[in-house]
């Protein structure tokens, strides 16, 4: 068991150092997400109240769209020269590879998400009434919920034809509950948690993470075996 944890830690280390080296990928994802926010503000019309109300929705839809870029990229790197097989033959446990890749994707989405908060405040005049801390926690739990199934389906899509089409097609229906919970929680942060629902929505996200991170670690071997 200890060895498994060591491998997970080593994989996370590899993924993070890889991210640092390929910083362009994070920047690209962030640029894409910020662009979608801008587009939403144009599409959302000029009514300030409406924009403030929808800020949470724009944040998460922008993040979800951007996630398909970063998730797809995270596995293009592995399948390009079959590095995934090299890892499996070292040997590295598939579950450790999953945890490493999922944490890597989580970090990218988290950075992009946190970067989008100030922009939401500016663009949509949505000062987080419940404080930035809670909003950051929401972004953390939301991105963690997206990155587990996202990593699974990015691995699946990267090995099938029609890769760029398959990832969103498989991922979006799966993250419907995360988006609902994350948007509701974020809206509570932005416009005030009148009905005290924030903690319940965060609990839903935690439940989703527990299920999908453990399922991912369990089933990832099936996705990468040849």
């Amino acid at each position: 068991m200890k060895e498994a944890l060591q491998q997970c830690a080593a994989m996370i280390g590899k993924e993070l150092s890889h991210l640092w080296r390929a910083r362009a990928r994070v920047a690209g994802t962030a640029a894409f997400a910020l662009a979608t926010l801008l587009l939403f503000s144009f599409a959302g019309g000029m009514n300030a109240d409406l924009l403030r109300h929808n800020a949470a929705g724009y944040l998460w839809i922008g993040l979800l769209l951007a996630s398909t870029l970063s998730l797809g990229e995270s596995f293009r790197v592995e399948t390009e020269h079959n590095a995934l097989e090299m890892l499996l033959l070292l040997p590295v446990r598939p579950a450790a590879i999953f945890v490493g890749k999922a944490v890597g994707n989580l970090v990218v989405l988290l950075l992009v998400g946190l970067l989008m908060i100030p922009l939401c405040v500016v663009l949509f005049d949505a000062a987080p009434r419940e404080g930035v801390g809670k909003l950051a926690l929401t972004v953390l739990l939301g991105t963690a919920s997206i990155s587990a199934p996202g990593t699974m389906h990015a691995a699946l899509a990267s090995r099938a034809r029609g890769r760029d089409l398959l990832l969103p097609l498989l991922l979006f229906p799966l993250v419907v509950p995360c988006v609902i919970a994350a948007v509701q929680a974020s809206r509570a942060c932005f416009t005030g948690d009148a009905m005290g629902e924030l903690s319940s929505w965060l609990a839903v996200l935690v439940g989703f993470c527990v299920v999908h991170w453990s399922l991912g670690a369990l089933l990832f071997e099936r996705v990468v075996e040849d």
Partner: peptide
Amino acid sequence: LSHADGHYDDL
């Protein structure tokens, strides 16, 4: 040692 060398291009 197979045709696909398993290296990471950006390392």
